[in-house]
Amino acid sequence: MSSSVLYDAPGPKALVRNRIYSVVGSLLILALIGYAVLQLADRGHFAPEMWNIFNNAGVRANIRDGILSTLQVFVVAAVLSLVLGVGLAVARLSDHRAVSAVATGFIELFRAVPLLITIYAMWVLFLTYKENLGFIGESSAYWALVIGLTVYNACVQAEVLRAGVNAVPKGQVEAAYALGLRKSQVMTMLLIPQAVRSMMPTIISQLVVTLKDTSLGYIITYAELLYAARTMANNIIVNDDNPYVPVVIVVGAIYVAMCLALSSVATWIEKRGRRAKTGIVPAAAGEPLEAPGVLETAAGPVGPQAPGGPEGTEGPADKQN
């Protein structure tokens, strides 16, 4: 652990003290968890009948369908947002003032507006022009969610990529121009590949955010995992009560598992990237850039070229585990 520099290797006295802290700390934490469990059990939330609902074929099918539709939205939105994100990043970096201004305005607007509002507005918009939209009009809720997620996340990904592009050493670009490469060649052959590579962990962290945000579909009654869970919790009656607690625990575990699986990919890529000798340090994983700010300071302390060696001493695995 890098943090060990904050304190000495404990001596005999400190060991005893730490052990006391450990015991007291664990007891406190256990007491808190125990209290919560007891309270819940007291209200019958851990009764076997409550949990038996998960043995039901209908409930299982609902959860499975929920996961599938969540993943369906996620995959389409993830791909589209990456494509649009690259486009927006290139547009914002463009030498043409007008193109750059439009891209900047688009990014700033949709990044500042809550996703919930974008999704809702998209949905009403799609319903209004349903007739003219063809296949999108057929399932407006699905596409409203996908497009809402795409637009928002594309803006964030564009900023991530821009930070990545800015982090590519100037000399490389100059060398490329000196070799006679055109602007588009420099962008597609030099800048974007390196930006994607160095920002991969951040990109994937943002994908985790995308995955979590699919749950905002409830606002337009799109039946993804969380909505399915709410419906079940509301409609199933066990012992004159609703199984909110079991459903929340199970669905929460599923979300955490999905997100962890995705972010472990980020950690893995970060580790691999570290091995390669490109001179560009991949950004530390695990900090989903939910919003502007971090990237505006790409050249600043948190950017990929962050000063301060300790960045490297803190292993990526520490971040997740």
Partner: peptide, 23 residues
């Protein structure tokens, strides 16, 4: 990763089960 995949696999294969209305 292993734990995450295990949980996912569990839920994904969780078809079947009793039929009829839950609760």
């Amino acid at each position: 990763a292993a734990v995450a995949i295990a949980v996912l696999a569990l839920t994904a294969t969780a078809c079947g089960g009793e039929s009829g209305t839950a609760g």
